[in-house]
């Protein structure tokens, strides 16, 4: 064990990332054996990988967003319903009001941004506990979306339709452009987190806010920015969601909260703040997506997935708690 940890390559990549990759591969092998054994149809092959990837795009953006918030020691579990709110309102603008598509996509990002701003403002400037803000925003997002769309679901145009070109963001021809977008965004997020003032400050304030404030840093502003960043990414996630799944229903979306948080904490971002890893989040998201695809292929319901995701989060966070206990 220690020998593996000392291996220079492993050291460079990070031990837990190696473990995560291992989990991802094992899981793929596991499903490749189990799915044919139970259902008779194959799992290995591109179609399921593409299915998992489709799921990974929007979830990835959500997870990247929430990574910034968790790095500050906060939480945002309004992201799922907010994504639905973005998708519903901008979709409604597109379908019912016939607004131009680019404007609608912008509206989507704008709504996400506004929610991020609102959440961040309340947490940073009003010191409202993040979980309360999340809870309120989650329900307000559902309410606003329902009011706006008069409780109707919205179907975005298909790729063959007039306004369907935005789907090329997810998949153009046979190329998974969504993957490129997601990885590109992850690289940008990693640079932001590790190489900019914003990233430095939010990680430090997640670790010791008062010390950062007493260094003359406007901690409130930067803390709010973390939520804002999350909001923007949620807005972008919406585009990939509707680009993959077409229909958005009012009143839903909260199941994605847990999956996004799961991807993030599995990747080594500490719930206590001050420690965040974008590459970890990326692998975490891929694991969650593969899990979802595998469960569907096993002809099991979403319910099982809810339970497994819950257990994953509990185990991942508990591992972090134990690691910190050992340090002290």
């Amino acid at each position: 064990m220690d020998k593996i940890k000392q291996n220079p390559l492993v050291k460079k990549v990070g031990f837990n990332r190696v473990v995560l990759c291992g989990v991802l591969i094992l899981m793929y092998i596991f499903f490749s054996i189990l799915v044919p054994a139970i259902t008779g149809s194959g799992f290995a092959g591109m179609s399921h990988i593409m299915g998992a990837l489709n799921y990974a795009y929007f979830l990835g953006f959500l997870s990247l967003g929430v990574t910034f918030v968790i790095a500050t020691g906060g939480i945002d579990f309004s992201i799922g319903p907010v994504m639905f709110c973005c998708g519903l309102i901008s979709g409604y603008c597109l379908i019912t009001y016939n607004m131009p598509l680019p404007l609608c996509l912008l509206i989507s990002i704008l709504i996400g941004t506004l929610f991020g701003l609102w959440n961040g403002y309340l947490v940073a400037y009003w010191t409202v506990p993040p979980f309360i803000v999340s809870m309120a925003s989650m329900n307000m997002a559902k309410g606003i979306a329902s009011v706006f769309t008069k409780t109707q679901s919205v179907s975005w145009p298909r790729s063959t339709d007039a306004n369907g070109w935005f789907r090329n963001l997810v998949k153009a021809g046979g190329i998974p452009t969504g993957l490129l977008c997601f990885l590109g965004a992850a690289v940008i997020c990693a640079i932001i987190l590790n190489n900019t003032k914003f990233g430095r400050y939010i990680i430090c304030l997640g670790s010791n806010k008062e010390a950062v404030r007493l260094s003359g840093v406007d901690t409130k502003k930067w803390e709010m920015c973390a939520y804002l960043m999350c909001g923007i990414l949620v807005g972008i996630a919406t585009i990939f969601f509707v680009g993959t799944y077409t229909t958005v229903q009012p009143g839903y979306g909260d199941t994605y909260n847990n999956e996004a948080i799961a991807g993030c904490v599995m990747g080594g971002t500490s719930m206590a703040g001050g420690l965040a890893s974008i590459s970890g989040t990326v692998i975490g998201v891929l694991i969650i997506s593969l899990l979802q695809e595998g469960i569907l292929a096993l002809k099991l319901t979403k319910d099982i997935q809810l339970i497994i995701t819950g257990i994953i989060v509990i185990v991942a966070v508990y591992a972090d708690v134990m690691a910190r206990r050992r340090k002290n």
Binding site: I75, F77, N257, L306, I307, I311
Partner: peptide, 16 residues
Amino acid sequence: LPPFLGTLCTCMMTRG
């Protein structure tokens, strides 16, 4: 575990 996180997990799990 942080209370909101632990109970968020059981929230999803009870739903399933």
